[in-house]
């Protein structure tokens, strides 16, 4: 096969494959739920390869580096723009927290004085901040709180913010390519599964599950008969944690 043929036919086919069936199949693959870290790494490799192949194809088929150069500029510009705007809004939020939140050195969390139960990890350069509300501290019991904090610390320590920001940029580079949105959602789910795994290793699967249900439903005490309708992403996390538990524990959780 002549190099010209490869450039004109195979490379465009590779681009089409990388922008459509590959990410769709990867997002549906079963193994990604069992191995969230490997899934996250695979998505990063996928994005780098796709960007590279796309630029190379344009450079070869258009017989000019101009279009490829423009696309490269667009990609870098969108990436920088995303990082810049995120940093700005994150810094403003941090400024507000510095005025209204209280740092608890024992728990190593920032506490907001509000009834609503929330816990989150705020990106902040190399040291993401873990923030909880008073409502969260009141709602969760001690072990549930440990699960919540272990989950958020996993986000902070493993720098999940870089993955999330990177794929947010990816989605903005190709706003009309649906699979980029799929990729961003899959990476978000992988970081949640990764953090759930670390929380489960830190406390246990059932406590982590209880913590999700507790904060999701906002109901203190026992969880029997709680009317709670989680969104699809949360339901996937609950199912995933349940599937990792031995049969007997699952039974005990459902019929306490």
């Amino acid at each position: 096969m002549s190099p010209e043929l490869a450039g004109r036919i195979l490379m465009p086919l590779a681009v089409i494959a990388l922008l459509w069936p590959v990410p769709v199949l990867l997002s549906r693959a079963r193994w990604t739920s069992r191995a969230p870290r490997a899934a996250a790494v695979t998505w990063v490799v996928y994005a780098l390869v796709t960007a590279y192949v796309l630029l190379l194809t344009l450079a070869l088929s258009a017989d000019s580096w101009l279009i490829a150069g423009l696309l490269l500029l667009w990609m870098l510009g969108r990436l920088l723009q995303t990082v810049y705007t995120l940093r700005g809004s994150q810094r403003r939020h941090q400024d507000a927290l510095a005025m209204v939140a209280i740092y608890d050195p024992e728990l190593r969390v920032h506490i907001i004085d509000d009834d609503r139960a929330l816990a989150y990890c705020l990106p902040n350069g190399s040291q993401p901040m873990v923030v909880v509300t008073r409502g969260c501290l009141e709602l969760a019991d001690d072990t549930e709180l440990r699960a919540i904090l272990a989950h958020e610390r996993s986000h902070a320590q493993n720098r999940h913010d870089l993955l999330v920001a990177g794929f947010l940029a990816w989605q903005r580079i190709f706003p009309f390519v649906p699979s980029c949105r799929v990729a961003a959602a899959a990476v978000g789910a992988a970081t949640e599964a990764w953090a759930d795994d670390e929380a489960a290793a830190h406390v246990s699967h059932d406590v982590t599950l209880r913590a999700i249900m507790r904060l999701g439903s906002g109901v203190p005490g026992g969880l029997d008969g709680v009317g709670w309708e989680p969104d699809a992403a949360t339901l996937a996390r609950v199912r995933r944690l349940l599937s990792q538990m031995p049969e007997s524990r699952r039974f005990a959780l459902q019929n306490p």
């Binding site: 929330l118 990106p123 999701g216």
Partner: peptide
């Protein structure tokens, strides 16, 4: 995604 933070559960 203007903050791109990771919330424990989107509950509220």
């Amino acid at each position: 995604h203007h903050l791109a933070l990771s919330m424990f559960v989107r509950s509220v």
